[in-house]
Structures are given as C-alpha cells and as structure tokens.
Design a protein around this nucleic acid. Structure first.
Lengths: 126, 126
DNA sequence: AATAAAAATGATAATGATTATTATTATCAA
DNA sequence: TTGATAATAATAATCATTATCATTTTTATT
C-alpha cells in the first residue's frame, strides 16, 4: 500500500482525534497542519482508506457520513441532542452475523448497529 | 391526525409497495396516480409521517434515505450488489436496548441494525 | 352559507454533502 | 533524465434534501 503525505496525515489526524469526525471536520483539523490541502483530497483519501479497510464509515447520522479510525468490532450510540457519536462495546451484542445466517441464510459482510438517544451529558442539561 | 389527499396517497403507495423506496422512487410511483404532485410534497409528507410514527426512515445506504412502511421492530439486510433492502426478523437479535442499558447505562430511543452483503439473487448471478 | 384563519400545496431556488473533471505536480522505475 | 503513472488542488457538477413563497385547499366560526 502506497501512502501520499496527504493520506498519511489524514489517517494520523483521524487516529489522534477519535471523535468520529465528518470529512468536513477532518478537513478543518488537517488544514492547520497542511494549509494547501484540498477538501476533495480529504474525501478521496477517506474513501480509499475505507476501501482498503484502514478505517470505517458510520452512516445514519443527519446527512453527513462520519469516519471511525477504530476497525475493531463495536457499535455506536448517537446523541439525538448534541449529535456526538459514542462507542458501544461489542459485547452488547455478539455474533449477530452468525445469528443472521442461522435465521435467514444470509451472509453478512458487515454489520452496523446504531442506537439513538440522549447521552448522559445532555440528560443532565435538560 | 389530519390527512391531505397527497399524504394519504403517499402512505397508501408506500404500504402497497413495500420495497423500502427513496423519496424520489416514491415520487415516481405516485406521479401516475396524481400527476400534479410535487417532489417537495413527497418529502414534506414523508417527514411528517416519520414524525408521527406512521413510517420509519432507513439510513446507511449510499446517499439517499429509504422509507419503511413497517413500524414493527425488525432489521435490514442491504445487498451490496443490487442495493435492494430486505427485512430481517426481530428474533435475530432481541432486547438490544436492554442489553445496551445494562452494559453502558445508556437509554436508546431507537435502534438500527443493518447488515450488508450479497443477497441470494446476486450470489447466483455471479 | 360566508368568510376569516390556518394549513398544505406546487414550483422552484437554495443548501449541503459528495463526486467528477482537469490541468498541474509528485513519485519512481528504467 | 525521461517517461509513465498516480496523486494533487481547485473548482465545477451532481444529487438529495430543505427553504421559500405565492396560491389553493381545508377548517373552524359566525
């Protein structure tokens, strides 16, 4: 696998800011470190990193796709108030693909489990 | 709850075409029955139907939001080849919200579980 | 039934996220 | 060093969705 400076930087910044950012947010984070970088380059490299399995997409949020530097099996909780994305450990629901197969015969290549609700921060402030 | 002719028609067509269509696809299906209807009206009414719990959104597909006339608890399988959305019965994974709560303390208002892979049709044709 | 108020519509402009295009630049093997 | 290939920055184009607004429909009230 070949890495351009831009792709390396994007991956580094994503790994050092595990906040499940959007492409736009990542652009904002990367720009101070490489002011000449283009938003299109951010999108292009994020897609490539997803394709080669280095990172993961999180969809299901309002509009924009978010990116996850963690490729270990886990799930997500999205706060309906502040829109923050929280990680949910895998042991909340294990072997879903296996259950899918035994119930339906279908074989899953990937599984996305996302909960929505109020996070504890937003519960307090209401 | 109040229903305009347009809203009633949109809901009817969605219920009679349980193919998890996008707003655009639904517009295409409704137009022959009411040629004067506007795409904006389709979007507006779909949002209202979602808000009052008559239908559900499915996100996580490439780009567009899909709509589900079935509000019973269930999950989805999306074919990575033909992009069709299949229903997955609830008993594949029950009480996920309860498990989430006991593991993390978080309370989910909604849960979305989506598998991706090749459907049996697409497996055959490859 | 008449009518004022409220809600919904159709048409279309505007927005926001993402992808495509294109001319230019970086990388690297021969 | 050259030529081939891949990647880039800039920006135009696309696609899904929402906002706007003048007009029409529905609803409630007299």
């Amino acid at each position: 696998m070949n890495f351009s400076k831009q792709r390396e930087l994007i991956l580094d910044v994503l790994r050092q800011n595990p906040i499940h950012p959007t492409a736009d947010k990542l652009y904002e984070l990367v720009r101070p470190l490489m002011p000449s970088i283009s938003l299109a380059t951010v999108y292009r490299n994020l897609n490539q990193l997803v394709d080669n399995g280095s990172i993961r997409k999180i969809s299901g949020l309002d509009g924009a796709v978010h990116y996850d530097h963690c490729v270990e099996k886990h799930y997500h909780f999205i706060c309906t108030c502040c829109n923050k994305v929280y990680d949910v450990p895998y042991n909340v629901a294990e072997d879903l693909e296996q259950k899918l197969k035994s119930f339906t015969g279908l074989e899953a290549q990937s599984t996305e489990l996302t909960f929505k609700g109020l996070c504890s921060d937003c519960q307090k402030s209401n």
